[in-house]
């Protein structure tokens, strides 16, 4: 069982790794989106510091949605997805493995780049730590929730805009928690509440989301 899961994980990792283009696109999108905020608003350092949490979080959020496009589509096209549904491993477990691999490939680089973005916006050291931590806990939730939307729309023409419409309302609580954790620490407030709520949300979505994604995929492949 463990071996099989590990095999699945490394397969997903290598497959995602082979699509370097996609990873580069997502990362590039994140960097450009963050860079657009100062250009579009102002270079005033004080103002930039105020908008930094929201700007970086919104950019991370849209990058996640962008990356979700490739989560299932290719495997649906070549029939792998349907075959994997027949494997002796529970589908939800298989999906969890795949989502973790997807997060490592597409979201982890964003988390790792976040400190640099924080520096560009003039954040202090402890603020950058909180920003990075909030993204570390928050982006897996985005991926887990987003996979439901990706599973419901896989194979549709022009699904990109639709996925965004479906997911943004669901993403609002995560966005609020994540960005307000950073702004709270900037105001010298305590952020334990933010992180315990986000941690709880992460655990709940880790447990429930694979089943939801499996149900959604079954509807799609029916």
């Amino acid at each position: 069982m463990h071996k099989m899961l590990w095999a699945l994980f490394s397969r997903d990792m290598t497959l995602f790794m082979h699509r370097k283009q996609d990873v580069v696109t997502v990362l590039g999108f994140f960097l450009i989106a963050v860079a657009l905020f100062p250009l579009g608003i102002s270079s005033d350092p004080e103002l930039l510091r105020t908008i930094a949490p929201g700007a970086i979080w919104i950019a991370a959020l849209f990058s996640t949605v962008l990356a979700l496009d490739r989560l299932f589509s290719e495997d649906l096209d070549d029939g792998t997805l349907e075959q994997q549904m027949l494997m002796p491993v529970p589908i939800s477990l298989m999906l969890l493995v795949r989502l973790i691999a997807h997060w490592v490939i597409t979201s982890l680089p964003i988390v790792l780049l976040a400190p640099i973005m924080g520096l560009q916006f003039g954040l202090a050291f402890n603020e950058i730590v909180i920003l990075t931590l909030s993204l570390l806990v928050g982006t897996p939730i985005l991926v887990l929730l987003g996979a439901i939307g990706a599973a419901l729309t896989v194979g549709l023409k022009s699904s990109g805009g639709l996925v965004t419409l479906l997911l943004l309302p669901l993403y609002v609580p995560v966005l609020i928690l994540g960005s307000s954790a950073v702004s709270s620490v900037m105001n010298g407030a305590d952020v334990t509440a933010h992180f315990s709520l986000m941690g709880a949300a992460l655990i709940i979505s880790l447990v429930l989301s694979p089943f939801a994604v499996a149900t959604a995929l079954k509807i799609t492949l029916d």
Partner: peptide, 8 residues
Amino acid sequence: GYMGLYSA
């Protein structure tokens, strides 16, 4: 979103 998905 509901109506969009349904009609898509």
